[in-house]
Nucleic acid binder design. Structure first.
Length: 966
RNA sequence: GCGGUCGUUGCUGAAUUGGUAUAAGCGCGACACUUAGGAUGUCGUGGGAGAAAUCCCAUGUGGGUUCGAGUCCCACCGGCCGCACCA
């Protein structure tokens, strides 16, 4: 009705106005053109993507830029306007880099294995491959409409067998490697076998020699070294999802990151990646990376390096000892009891038949024997999910094991407890408890009436009588007391000195040693899922694992009757996982020739976690069709190799959300380092520069019951919000279908065009900050494009209206506005400050509009080039209308003339004691002395001074003079 | 609790090294063109006082350093993010 009216009316008034309809026509045309011409193809130095013509040959000779987005999951819901924010930003940046002399590799693939894709498939009842590929096509269409300048030859999805062949191949490399701690790098497992063979290296934990071991025994030894290994260990079992999870996928409150189901500890045989071998390198190499400090910090915290000591406490009668890890070895003399994690295996060995004489009632938990107490407490601890364990953190529970250990420095007998505040997975799973100087031990000691000994004199005046304390004294700002035996004394030393002295003494006595402990644990790598990469592993009849040779890769996912995961009651810890692939017996049981004749094997039926495909995808963008190698070394070296100013090598810019701070980014760094050690790549770090874009938020409107109501139907009156007449509450949150506030790129493109959407998303604010979407404000960028269009094109005839004017004859104010804009936009785009770049283009555009008249051609052309990275379709169209036959994409970005970047005259501020009293127009070249003279002579200044003397004059020519009166 | 980060106008946000606070956009107001405007264009728009020139106040709050502080330092208040029984 009114819309058709308005469209008709405006068409009559201005048939060639820049409208949504015209934008749609222009955009579709140029998108087709770019695809047909291969405009965004980045040539490789060699191979099947080498330069195909002279123009591309010239590109290869330029410096390279590899600009990447974190690739998307092809979700079934489609995109909302928040999703492409980062893609638009990298596209603008990539376009700017193309125009400033770089060979730019920019493309986008799809991360399509994993839980979200599988769950969507299960929900819709289609095979994951069918639904996932449909989703990818849908997303490709949505992204294409935005005019993203991707090299489409290089796009792939992680589910393509051509791609996951190499994911499996990398797994085989990792499986067939071990970490040589002396060389500090990964080496082929064959090197280790050679060391065992020659006797250079002894078989660990055994008196037997390598040649005496059978195949299964050798495999067991090697699995203790392999960087990918299967082992029985307590893992995170999530019955609600029906799979085990990595530590990184479990939230702080003990739930699955996806689905929010409870997670339990269960002992299961699972595949792991020995990422802990790389803990120190993953930590140290962060320093050289150009990453946000917040992300580096998160990785450092996750790796969790802490320096301390291991100390042995003798226990029992058979020469056993409890080894503890502590960072406070200086307080050893204050260790009055010990605690083991409930699962600690030493417990079973040392628990006596009966409680020792005089055991305190609260220590026994009311149980008749230590064995019963331990069994009951273990059952109690295991039944608690991590959620409950967190919630109960303040209340300390535990039970006495009935055994005493010997404090190795004081010789004192100290009771040994088990308690769930000590975790099996950190340190040695055992602690020495120093209740006077650790607040957790303090709480436990109070609850169990355990003695405390003050060995660090409190510096806060509370005194040394621990019975009067409310909490432990754990400060380092104090001196040691009560800490000496016949051989060593720490008394009077500060904490740091005391640590050094006692560590030295422990080492000489063979009781302990200084050590570094990491919080990082090995990466649990197997999942009980259908929709993931199958492991390239088979087991022989002895149960020994063998990797498949390259000729048998890819090992494709087989068809199964039922691909859905076996899930359970989320709260039922007493369940165990089932792998969907095990349902296909024909696939599982095979006869293969692995080099020693045909034999029967059983396939591994776990699949890889969804992180696997994203651990190395940057490498495949470089050489996506190579079926002989992961990536051609010459091509890899060109795009990823170390270079001046970037000694780590790697992707030049990697943009994505901060939610991947530890998961994806840590795993990808780990794989890079292994591939680097094994000589397959030239960069030990995948991503040199990381940039986290903010989130586009949206207002959520909730009714009185708290349910979201459709945001588009909410009315605002006097700052209050109403839906169907009823008041609703507004809050700022995420954008999404379920919150009824999603805005899609499609609807914005329909209303205004993709160039307007691109400009708006970039103009909203700094890229790294989150901010709310405001559909109303989009029109501002639409107006910018309309004004730009009108400046160059006559709205009634469609003819270009520029005129040829020599640079010298152009109005000086216009030249200054132009060159200032060029200078500013260049710097802003280079620094990824897209919002201020647009503001400067807008200012120039407004200036030209205001001046009126016909625009000089050279000014119009440079304005078009300035906006080309941001609004590529309209720029191409105007460039063509201005008479050019080539694409704007590979033009040189305008360069400012410094002579016009400075103003003809500058407003100088004259302050008296910091307050502005006068403004002077002065030439920019004015000297300090001259400016001071002019300022002091100004009548307003004279009046303001009112005859007062002058103590001091600060001159910052040409912008400021500040007079300090006496 | 520990660590990080941010508080500027009705809203989103500008502001090299400390040097004219509030660029640009939205919204709002007036006007023009219009049968009409939710189109387009032009002008205005931090608060207060004043007829006006002009003056005073204002970057979460309170101090400090400085000729000069949105910017640096200290304390507090508020928001957001990360980690959290890690020995």
């Amino acid at each position: 009705m009114s819309e058709t009216n308005s469209a008709a009316a405006s068409e009559v008034a201005a048939p060639h106005r820049y409208t949504a309809a015209l934008a749609a026509e222009i955009e579709a045309r140029w998108q087709d053109f770019w695809d047909a011409e291969g405009t965004y193809e980045a040539p490789n130095p060699s191979g099947d993507m080498a330069a195909r013509d002279e123009a591309q040959a010239a590109l290869v000779a330029k410096p390279k830029k590899f600009i990447m987005d974190m690739f998307p999951y092809p979700s079934g819901a489609g995109l909302h306007v928040g999703h492409p924010l980062g893609y638009i930003a990298t596209d603008v940046f990539a376009r700017f880099q193309r125009m400033t002399g770089h060979n730019v590799l920019h493309t986008l693939g799809f991360d399509a294995f994993g839980l979200p894709a599988e769950q969507y498939a299960v929900q819709t009842g289609t095979h994951p491959r069918v639904s996932t590929e449909a989703n990818i096509e849908n997303m490709k269409a949505q992204l294409r409409a935005l005019g993203l300048g991707h090299d489409k030859r290089r796009s792939f999805a992680t589910i393509d067998p051509d791609y996951y062949k190499w994911t499996q191949w990398i797994f085989v490399q990792i499986f067939n490697s071990w970490y040589d701690a002396d060389a500090k790098k990964a080496r082929p497992i064959a090197d280790l076998v050679a060391q065992f063979d020659s006797g250079e290296r002894a078989v660990p934990g055994s008196t037997r020699v390598w040649s005496e071991l059978n195949a299964a025994e050798r495999a067991e030894v090697l699995s203790q070294y392999r960087l990918a290994y299967a082992s029985d260990a307590p893992v995170n079992w999530c019955p609600g999802l029906g799979t085990v999870l990595a530590n990184e996928e479990v939230t702080a409150d003990g739930r699955s990151e996806r689905g929010n189901f409870p997670v339990f500890k269960a002992k299961l045989r699972q595949w792991n990646m020995r990422i802990t071998a790389y803990a120190d390198r993953l930590l140290d190499d962060l320093d050289a990376l150009d990453w946000p400090e917040a992300i580096k910090l998160q990785q450092r915290n996750w790796i969790g390096r802490s320096e301390g000591a291991r100390v042995n406490f003798p226990v029992g009668t058979e020469g056993d000892a409890i080894t503890v890890f502590t960072t406070r070895q200086d307080t050893l003399f204050g260790a009055t009891y010990m605690v083991l994690a409930p699962e600690h295996e030493l417990v079973d060995k040392v628990v006596p038949a009966a409680w020792p004489e005089g055991t305190h009632e609260v220590w026994t938990g009311g149980h008749a024997t230590p064995a019963e107490a331990v069994a009951k407490y273990r059952a109690f601890a295991a039944s608690k999910s991590d959620v409950e364990r967190q919630a109960d953190a303040k209340e300390k529970t535990g039970v006495f094991t009935g055994v005493y250990a010997t404090n190795p420095v004081s010789g004192e007998q100290v009771p040994v407890f088990i308690a769930d505040y000590v975790l099996m997975g950190y340190g040695t799973g055992a602690i020495m408890a120093v209740p006077a100087h650790d607040s957790r031990d303090f709480a436990f000691a109070r609850a169990f009436h355990l003695p405390m000994r003050c060995v660090v004199e409190p510096s806060d005046g509370r005194g040394t009588d621990t019975s009067t304390w409310d909490d432990a004294f754990s400060s380092y700002e104090a001196k040691l007391i009560n800490s000496s035996n016949a051989e060593v004394s720490l008394d009077g030393l500060g904490v740091v000195d005391a640590k050094a002295r006692i560590t030295g003494w422990l080492a000489t006595r063979g009781i302990g040693e200084g050590t570094v402990n990491f919080r990082l644990r090995d990466w649990l790598f197997s999942r009980q899922r259908y929709w993931g990469e199958p492991f390239p592993i088979v087991y022989d009849e002895d149960g020994v694992a063998h990797s498949l040779p390259e000729s048998m890769l890819p090992l494709e996912l087989p068809e199964v009757d039922d691909y859905s995961p076996r899930t359970f009651d989320p709260d039922d810890a007493d369940t165990s996982p089932e792998t969907p692939l095990s349902r296909n017996e024909d696939w599982v049981n095979v006869t293969l020739d692995l080099g020693d004749g045909p034999k029967k094997y059983r396939r591994e039926t776990n699949t890889m976690p969804n992180w696997a495909g994203s651990c190395w995808y940057e490498l495949r963008y470089l050489d996506p069709r190579n079926d002989q190698q992961l990536v051609d070394p010459a091509v890899e070296q060109y795009w990823m190799g170390p270079r001046e100013g970037q000694p780590t090598g790697g992707v030049d810019l990697y943009v994505g959300g901060a939610e991947h701070a530890v998961l994806h980014l840590l795993y990808a760094r780990f794989w890079s380092k292994v591939l680097f050690d094994l000589g397959h790549v030239s960069s030990a770090e995948p991503f040199h520069k990381l940039y986290n874009q903010g989130m586009i938020q949206a207002y959520v409107y909730r009714d009185s019951r708290g349910f979201p109501v459709p945001a588009t139907e909410v009315e605002e009156r006097d700052g209050k919000f109403f839906f169907e007449g009823e008041p609703v509450k507004r809050e700022l949150g995420k954008m999404g279908k379920s919150l009824k506030n999603a805005v899609t790129p499609d609807e914005i493109c329909d209303e205004y065009g993709a160039d307007t959407l691109r400009l708006y998303e970039m103009a909203m604010g700094p890229l790294d900050v989150s901010r709310p979407w405001d559909t109303r404000a989009v029109v501002g960028q639409y107006r910018l494009l309309q004004r730009l269009w009108r400046l160059i094109v006559d709205e009634s005839t469609g003819e270009v209206t520029v005129e040829d004017v020599a640079e010298a004859d152009i109005d000086e104010a216009t030249l200054r506005a132009l060159h200032k804009a060029i200078d500013g936009v260049r710097q802003d785009l280079d620094g990824m400050r897209f919002n201020t770049a647009i503001a400067k283009i807008t200012e120039l555009n407004n200036h030209l509009t205001k001046v009126g008249g016909v625009v000089p051609r050279s000014v119009a052309e440079r304005l078009v080039l300035l906006i080309a990275p941001l609004a590529p379709h309209v720029a191409e169209e105007l460039w063509r209308k201005l008479g050019h036959t080539d694409s704007v994409v590979h033009q040189d970005f305008p360069v400012a003339d410094p002579a016009y970047v400075v103003d003809e005259s500058v407003t100088c501020v004259v302050q008296i004691k910091g307050k502005v009293k006068a403004r002077l127009e002065v030439p920019p070249s004015i000297s300090d002395a001259e400016l001071e003279k002019v300022a002091l002579a100004d009548e307003k200044v004279v009046a303001a001074l009112d005859g007062a003397g002058i103590r001091k004059v600060i001159v910052r020519a040409p912008k400021l003079v500040n007079i300090v009166p006496a």
